[in-house]
Amino acid sequence: MNKYITAYYMDEEDLMKGLRQMKAKGLKISDVLTPFPVHGIDKVLEIPRSRLTRVGFIAGAVGAAVAFGFQAWVFTIDYPLNFGGKPFFSVPSFIPVTFELTVLFAAFAMVIAFLITNKLSPGAKPLIHDERCTDDRFLVVVKVDDDSSDESISQIKLALAEAGAEGILLKA
């Protein structure tokens, strides 16, 4: 069971200033909860650029291959039928469906990957530190081990206070 120390800011510019100070002091920030994406926070928290785009690219390529391959197979091998004198392997005709399935595969794969990597799912029960994080508070969360001493906890609290954070709380 982990313990958390939380503290909040009421403005994203104060938050960014505070985060830089905490980082300079070597405080390990576990997470920051914000009501909207804060510009530049990725750099301070060293969050790597998301690789979800690759999932999208691969799934899109698969979608294109499946759609084109399937149509070509149906019309040249499985059931060649003459429609309006068009050739059986009529590439221009296959493009619209190929395009649509490319987009469909890429979009769904990306969203599913997004939900999985974020551990988001219908009915997930997240730990809600502060209900106002989705409203107007910018919450800094620091994880502390169960057996960490009171001294280190108060040090973290002090660092948070020095960085101008409000409402410092220790939660079990």
Binding site: L33, T34, I47, S50, L52, V103, A107, T117, S121, P126
Partner: peptide
């Protein structure tokens, strides 16, 4: 879906929104 507003989630959320927009 258990959204908390974590900075990591937001980062991925922005990427996913942008690419979905591109698609």
């Amino acid at each position: 879906f258990g959204w908390t507003g974590s900075a990591r989630h937001w980062s991925r959320h922005e990427t996913v929104s942008l690419i979905l927009a591109g698609l």
